[in-house]
């Protein structure tokens, strides 16, 4: 446990003391701010009165949301293991009394905490909405739950991508490619005609999941999928790390 905490604290310091992290934070703030501004502008216009709450629109998936998320996740996670492999610091880490699982978990949790930190300022949007309209806290909580779940999966994919190469750029590209797969799954859903295929694709359709969370619907299938997929990728990452140690 102490080894895990040591890795976690080391990685958290690396994130929060890196100016790059704040550049990412500024970018994500600008993006979320622009989305929120658009929603506020539309809903305060004379033709307002649609059938969706503002934060549902905010959490509703659209192409740019996903593209932006993929880039952010790839940039946040590319360094995690690839940098250790490149600089050779992985060897002393692996020879110390720390298991692969503890290393992977420590790095993963740190990256995940930073990912959540990036979303924390959006709570200001909720307060702004509360000032001018009635806020239904349930869909807001479920919207954030969706972000947490999808973030957990994406960060796990990202750390796995980082374990596959010594180059951070290659790791980022690999992560981006794997995350794009999740996006194409949602397109495949519209193309599939077979009912079983549709059901399987729907199970993995993160766009649909996020739409549900944004509406205030929490489906246990989504949560099972996020936890199991995150666990699977973390397991693969541990194996990839162990394989490098064995060589």
């Amino acid at each position: 446990m102490s080894a895990f905490l040591a890795v976690l604290s080391r990685e958290l310091r690396a994130y929060f003391y890196s100016p790059m992290a704040y550049v990412i934070l500024a970018c994500i703030q600008a993006y979320n701010g622009a989305t929120f501004s658009y929603i506020v502008w539309v809903l305060s216009g004379p033709g307002a009165g649609g059938s969706a709450t503002p934060l549902r629109i905010f959490f509703a998936p659209h192409f740019f949301f996903w593209l932006f998320l993929f880039v952010v996740v790839a940039v946040l996670t590319m360094r995690l293991i690839a940098e250790e492999l490149r600089s050779g610091t992985i060897e002393p880490l692996m020879t110390s009394p720390v298991s692969e699982a503890q290393v992977v978990l420590g790095k993963y949790v740190a990256a995940f905490v930073f990912f959540l930190f990036l979303w924390a300022p959006t709570l200001v949007f909720v307060l702004i909405m509360g000032r001018w309209s009635e806020v239904d806290w349930g869909p807001i909580a479920s919207g954030y739950l969706g972000i947490v779940g999808i973030g957990a999966v994406f960060m796990a994919v990202g750390i796995f991508g980082s374990s596959l190469s010594k180059s951070q750029i290659v790791a980022a590209i690999l992560t981006f490619a794997m995350l794009t797969f999740f996006f194409f799954v949602s397109i495949a859903h519209d193309l599939a005609t077979d009912e079983t295929a549709k059901e399987i694709i729907n199970h993995m359709n993160l766009m649909q999941h996020m739409d549900d969370f944004g509406k205030g619907i929490v489906d246990t299938r989504r949560l099972v999928y996020y936890v199991s997929t995150s666990a699977l990728f973390l397991f693969f990452t541990s194996l990839a790390l162990a394989a490098k140690k064995w060589r």
Binding site: D136, S142, E199, I217, V218, D219, T220, R221, V224, Y225
Partner: peptide
């Protein structure tokens, strides 16, 4: 995931 997909619950968190 198969079992999760077969035995699931949907919760409505809207007020």
């Amino acid at each position: 995931n198969y079992l999760g997909g077969r035995h699931y619950q949907r919760f409505d968190w809207t007020g």
